[in-house]
Each structure stands twice: as C-alpha cells, then as structure tokens.
Design a binder for these strands. Sequence first.
DNA 1: TTCTAACTTGCACTCAGTGCACGCCGCGCT
DNA 2: AGCGCGGCGTGCACTGAGTGCAAGTTAGAA
Lengths: 188, 188
Amino acid sequence: MRQRSPETWRQIRDSAVGLMAARGFDAVSVEDIVAAAGISRRTYFNYFAGKESVLFDPDPEDPRLWAELIAARPPGEPLWTALHQLIREYTTATAERVIRQRLVLRASPELADCSRNVCDRFWDAIREWASERDAGPTELQLDLLINTARTVLNTVLPRWDVDTGIAGLHRLIDEGFTLLQSPEWTTS
Amino acid sequence: MRQRSPETWRQIRDSAVGLMAARGFDAVSVEDIVAAAGISRRTYFNYFAGKESVLFDPDPEDPRLWAELIAARPPGEPLWTALHQLIREYTTATAERVIRQRLVLRASPELADCSRNVCDRFWDAIREWASERDAGPTELQLDLLINTARTVLNTVLPRWDVDTGIAGLHRLIDEGFTLLQSPEWTTS
DNA sequence: TTCTAACTTGCACTCAGTGCACGCCGCGCT
DNA sequence: AGCGCGGCGTGCACTGAGTGCAAGTTAGAA
C-alpha cells in the first residue's frame, strides 16, 4: 500500500474506528467507512490492504515513536525489563488509540479470538533492535523472550476494563511481567 | 457448522491440504477444493466456516484424544510440566497432520504471520481442565502460564525444519520449555 | 408405502479485494 | 502561456469468499 497523505490515512481510520465502536466490526462495511470518510472505495484500498488493516495498521507516525522509545533504553538493561518498560511507555504515548481500539473490540464479539492488536509491528522493531544489541543469546532465545512479553500483553488486554484507563492497564501489565519473573512461576 | 459425517469432513480436508501443500493457500479456491473432493460448494460451507477453517479446525476425533491425554496426567504434577508433556504427546499422536499442516504453511508465504495452528482448540480444553484442577492460582496466572506454553509452541514451529520429523520438533519444544523455566531467563 | 429427519445441493445475493485505465491538479521547465 | 510529468484519487469491471433459503435426495422408522 503506497500511503499518500497521513491526513487522509487518519481520516479513514477515525471514521472506521468511530463506526465500529458504535456498531461492531462486522456491521460496518467498507462502503460505510468510505461514505463517512468522504473518499472512494478504491482509495480506501490504496491505504489499507483489507478491512482489518484499518484497525491494526500502525499510525504513520508510529515508527518514529518506536525509534525514540527504543533509543531511550539504558545500555546493559536486562531485555525483559526493557520489554516491560517499552510496552508501558508505548501504551502511555498512544493511550487514546489503545483505548479506542479496545472499544471496537468490546463491541465486536466476532473478533474475540483475534490476537492482533495495536502493537504488532512494534514488536518487529523491538526484535530488530534486540538482536543487534545482544550478542549473547541465540535467535531462539530472543524470540522466546519477546514473544513471551507479547503474550503478557495479549493475555492482559482482554481482561482490562477500559474504564480504569491506562493506569488500570499498567497495573495488569506489571502484574503479568512480575509473575513471570518470579522464580517459582513454573512450579505452581 | 453442524458436522455431519466425519468421513466427508476428512475427505474435504484431505483434498484441501493436498492442493494447498502443492500450490499454496491463496492459489487454491474453494471451487478447486470442492471439485477435488467431489462435493458442492454449499456443502463445503456446511462443514467449514471459511477457507482457513479447513486448515485449522480440529479433527472430529480430536476432543476424544484431548480428553485421553489430559486424563493421563498424574495428580499433583506442576502445570508447566503438564503443558510440556501434553504438547509433546499431542504432536506425537497427530504427527502426520502436524507435518502436513506445516507443509501447507511452507508453501504459503501469505500465511507467514498467521499465528493459528493445529492445536488452537486443544488449549481451550487444557484451560478448562487446569482451572478446575488448581484452586490456588488466579485466572490471570493460569492464562499466563497456558498462553506462555502456547507461545513456546508458536515460536518454535516456524523454526522447525519439517524434514527432521516430529523428533526434531520435540527437540525444539524441549529447548523452549527448558529455557523459560531456568531461573535466570529474565535476566539475560 | 409413507412420513420424517439428516444431509446435500442450486440459486441468488452481499461484500471484500484487485487490476486497469483515466482524470485531476500542482509543479517545474521553456 | 503552453507543455510534460508525477502524485494522487476515482470509476469500472471482475474474481472469489461467505450466507440465507428453498428444494431435492436418501435411509430408515412407522
């Protein structure tokens, strides 16, 4: 998808998310979205590869944000801690979007077992950074660590009561990360 | 999907998997599948909710198998160990299917980031069993543990060279489970 | 035989997604 | 002004996934 203007991109996304939060994912057609956004059907597909993409594609500004957050990590920090902090800071920085996406999912039971979320491409950026930062661990170890962190987030998100805000989400994230690094977590 | 005869179910699945392993997922239409299976288009959708379902829905016999494997777990066994053994034994019992599904994915780059796999519904059965077996841990702890095990499998599967057979897969699974239960895994 | 229930099928329809060609507009060049 | 060009939006026509409905088949019970 060649993306032209970020303004149009956000206009489409905002229209879509608004409709979907109100009616649910399935009850909104691409036709509805483009009507609300004031563009043509064909233009929609120039910006988004499919109907789900409008929910899960990263904002055009996101790669810049990821780079900043990653660059701010102190050298020598354990990877697990870095992942924990990164996901905390990312959800803080994009709080409204995280909440709005959650509202759509809450209104769309048909996406219940969809494991995608706002951060999907973020993990790719993290993986790249981690694999050139740490010479020690194998690729498999890195992937396991990162995917486990991702799992913490994915496990916690559905349990999150959106009304408690980002603070409520952070409490769950902290709980998850802490649980998994406690020494006895595998012996319950 | 009300499933009528297991024979028809497997006939459709076998036709689909065969074609997809040869041509790739996208290059096979439902039309192709039903032609190969000798049934009508409409019947296909009586058995499978979509095109992906034919790859990821559990075999009609699977729930029975799950129940057997789960029932065989010794009482008092740590949950992490149980998960490790269950996934080992399940992949052993369904080896050909695991391999065939992998062959399809290998031929279908378009499914590269699809995290679904043969075992998806198995985890649900496990979760149910675990939550009534262990009174101790919270729902969140159980979900974290189970989802982490699932992550081990999902991380390891794409790295698995199908030609090494199920033994090769087991080596990777063991490596993953062992890594995560080593005490220093979060401090790398 | 007749009724019935399980199963299969054809038909018609909606909607997602794509290839292609065309149109608009702002830009720099002469 | 006239020209060409490139970025972007759009219309159109087409393939293929997925669904509701009503009719057909078949095996077995009554």
